[in-house]
């Protein structure tokens, strides 16, 4: 009986530990999504550029799409955001595809006098134990 209690306690501890680890992981990737959200909302790429992976898949409306280095991605998205005046953005959907977190949401911009709705999709990947932005699409 004692043995069963011990094993049960150990299992509980393990489960708790695992859950905590998952929460920490989720908090970490949520931090990246929050940075993207705040950056797109303010039209300020510097708020999330630090999270770019070495190679980022970038797709912008009316622009090139493909894999770019983090420096290229920085300037491509900067140009995209500079040309627009942000009117509001937040992620509305968070999800996991094969343990890879992604988030989507609709951003509203003013572009050449028009209001423009752009769907933002961001997916992360893990690099050296940290969550980094692997894909970011404005479509």
């Amino acid at each position: 009986m004692k043995l069963i209690i011990h094993i049960s306690l150990m299992l509980l501890a393990l489960i708790a530990l695992n859950l905590t680890a998952q929460e920490v992981g989720q908090e970490l990737n949520r931090e990246v999504f929050n940075a993207i959200e705040s950056g797109v909302d303010a039209g300020d790429i510097d708020r999330f550029a630090g999270y770019f992976a070495k190679q980022v898949y970038v797709s912008t409306r009316g622009g090139e799409s493909g894999y770019f280095s983090s420096s290229q991605a920085y300037y491509i998205i900067k140009n995209f955001l500079t040309a627009r005046k942000p009117l509001g953005f937040s992620f509305t959907t968070y999800g996991f595809a094969d343990e890879i977190p992604f988030a989507t949401g609709s951003a509203l911009f003013r572009f050449k006098g028009n209001r423009e709705s752009v769907q933002v999709y961001a997916a992360l990947s893990k690099s050296n134990g940290k969550w980094v932005i692997d894909k970011i699409n404005f479509y």
Binding site: G63, E64, G66, F68, S69, S70, S71, Q72, Y74, Y75, I76, N79
Partner: peptide, 9 residues
């Protein structure tokens, strides 16, 4: 001047 060709930090 298009960073998709080249852009360095």
């Amino acid at each position: 001047f298009d960073p998709s060709y080249f852009a360095s930090g």
